[in-house]
Nucleic acid binder design. Structure first.
Lengths: 171, 171
DNA sequence: TCAAGAAACATGAATTTTCATATAATTCTT
DNA sequence: AAGAATTATATGAAAATTCATGTTTCTTGA
C-alpha cells in the first residue's frame, strides 16, 4: 500500500500520499467549484468571501493566510472584487499600513447563498460517501495540517546519510 | 465538528471539508514542492515527470488526466520540457494524431532522484505524523476519489426542495 | 470511398499569477 | 527623537494559465 516497498513494477503516483491528497481535494471540489463559477465567481474569489464571512474586516495579510492566497495576488483579487462591489477596503485608523477588507451588503448576499450551498454540498458529499458527518476524516485532516504547520525541520534529498538518526520533533 | 450544525457563532471555513482537503494537500506538499523548485522544476513539471516514470510514452491526453493538468496547458509545459531536454515527443506511428511523450535519459536521471526524494519524504511524513505507513489515510482518500470520480448526478444550490429525497447512488 | 463527425493536439489572445521590489506607515534602538 | 529596521500593502514586468477555436488525422456509415 505504501510506496516504501521497492517493487520496481508498482506504479508510484497512484499510491503517493501527496498525489492522493491533491487528487482528493480536486475530485471533492470539482462540482462545487463549477457551481461557484456559475454564480460568477472564480474559486479564489469564493475563498475570499467565505473567509470574510468568518472574519469580516480582517487585514490583507490575515486574509491571505486564511484563504491560502499569496499576498500580492490577493491584493489584486480584492481590488477587482472592490470594483465589482463585493467588498470594500478601509485603511485601519489605528495602523495606517493595514487595509481592512469588508463584505458589502451585496457581497454578503452572495456569500450567504454560496455558504449555504457549500454546506448543503458538504452534507450531501459526506452522506453519500460515508454516511456520517465526516468527523473522522476531518479530524484526520486537521491533525495532519496542525502537525505540518508546526513546521518540523529537516531537509529533503540530501542523500548524504541515508540511514541517519533524525531528531524526534514533537508529537 | 461538522458544518451541519447551524451555530451562527461557529466559523465556517476551518471545519469545511473542501477547505480541509485543500489545506491538507497544501501543507503536506509545501516542503517537497519547494525542494522540487530547488532542483529547477516547477510543480507541474515534476508531476509530469513522476507520471512518466509510471507510464512512459503515454499520449498527451492520458498524461493530462494522470497528472491533473488541463490539456492545452500540458502541451505548453511539454514543449518547454522538450526544449530543456527532459522529455521527447514522438508522433504515434499507429495514429498520427497522437503525440507520445518519453523521458530522455537526462530526464529520467532527474526523475529517478526526485522520486526517491519523494518516497523518502513521504516515509518521513507518515512516520512523524502517524507512525504507520499511511495505509488508513490512503485508503480513505482513494475511496473518496473513486467515489467522486464515478460521478454521481445532482445539482448544487437549487433551493427548490430543501428536504428532498435523493436517490441513493452506489457505495 | 467519400463526406461527416469525432478525436488529439496546437495555438493565440486575454487574463492571471509570480517574483522581486517599491512605497508607506509603524516600531525599535540608542 | 533621529535613524534603522520591520511590517503591510501595492506595483510592474515577465511568465504561466485559460478558453475558445484551429488544424490535422482518424473513424464511421451510407
Amino acid at each position: 500500500m505504501s510506496n516504501t516497498t521497492d517493487d520496481p513494477k508498482a506504479p508510484f503516483v497512484p499510491n503517493y500520499l501527496l498525489y492522493l491528497l491533491a487528487a482528493a481535494s480536486e475530485a471533492a471540489s470539482a462540482r462545487f467549484h463549477s457551481h461557484v463559477r456559475t454564480r460568477g465567481l472564480r474559486v479564489p474569489e469564493w475563498r475570499v468571501m467565505a473567509c470574510l464571512m468568518d472574519t469580516d474586516g480582517s487585514m490583507v495579510t490575515e486574509l491571505a493566510r486564511y484563504a491560502m492566497i499569496e499576498q500580492s495576488r490577493l491584493t489584486k483579487i480584492i481590488i477587482q472584487m472592490d470594483a465589482r462591489g463585493l467588498v470594500t477596503r478601509r485603511s485601519d485608523p489605528k495602523d495606517g499600513r493595514r487595509v481592512r477588507v469588508f463584505l458589502t451588503p451585496q457581497g454578503r448576499l452572495l456569500a450567504d447563498e454560496l455558504v449555504a450551498d457549500a454546506k448543503a454540498h458538504e452534507m450531501e458529499l459526506l452522506r453519500s460517501f460515508h454516511g456520517g458527518d465526516g468527523t473522522e476524516i476531518k479530524d484526520t485532516l486537521r491533525a495532519l495540517i496542525q502537525h505540518l504547520e508546526s513546521d518540523q525541520p529537516g531537509r529533503i534529498g540530501t542523500t548524504d546519510s541515508p540511514g541517519r538518526n533524525p531528531e524526534i520533533a514533537d508529537s
